[in-house]
């Protein structure tokens, strides 16, 4: 078994499921699989047993680039003093009924 992958080295995949047409895919969890085809099969068995989905995405966890907790100050704080970036900053005139 020297050329077999030990179980702890089997890649981790993140699973995203779209529950209904028109909705976005949502992250539901993760699983281990040898490759993306197997990850898709396992995702069906692990996460859609009760008919939760119409579409599944799987992506290698290692392919996800994530922001760092420590970066949050420089990433997000500057936006707090720019309230005009939010729609709620603006008063809707009474005459506008359907916005």
């Amino acid at each position: 078994m020297s050329d077999a992958m030990p179980l702890h080295e089997v890649p981790l995949y993140e699973v995203f499921i779209r529950s209904k047409r028109g909705l976005d895919h949502r992250h539901v969890g993760s699983l281990h699989a040898e490759d993306s085809a197997q990850a898709l099969e396992y995702a069906r068995d692990v996460y859609t047993r009760r008919g939760e989905g119409v579409s599944i995405w799987v992506v290698k966890s290692s392919d996800i680039v994530a922001s760092q907790e420590g970066d949050s100050a420089s990433f997000y704080d500057p936006q707090d003093d720019k309230p005009y970036r939010h729609a709620t900053f603006y008063k809707v005139p009474d005459e506008v009924s359907n916005l």
Partner: peptide, 12 residues
């Protein structure tokens, strides 16, 4: 089963 994922699949 050899892994949790495979166990669920076999049980299904």
């Amino acid at each position: 089963a050899p892994s949790l994922e495979e166990e669920l699949a076999l049980a299904n």
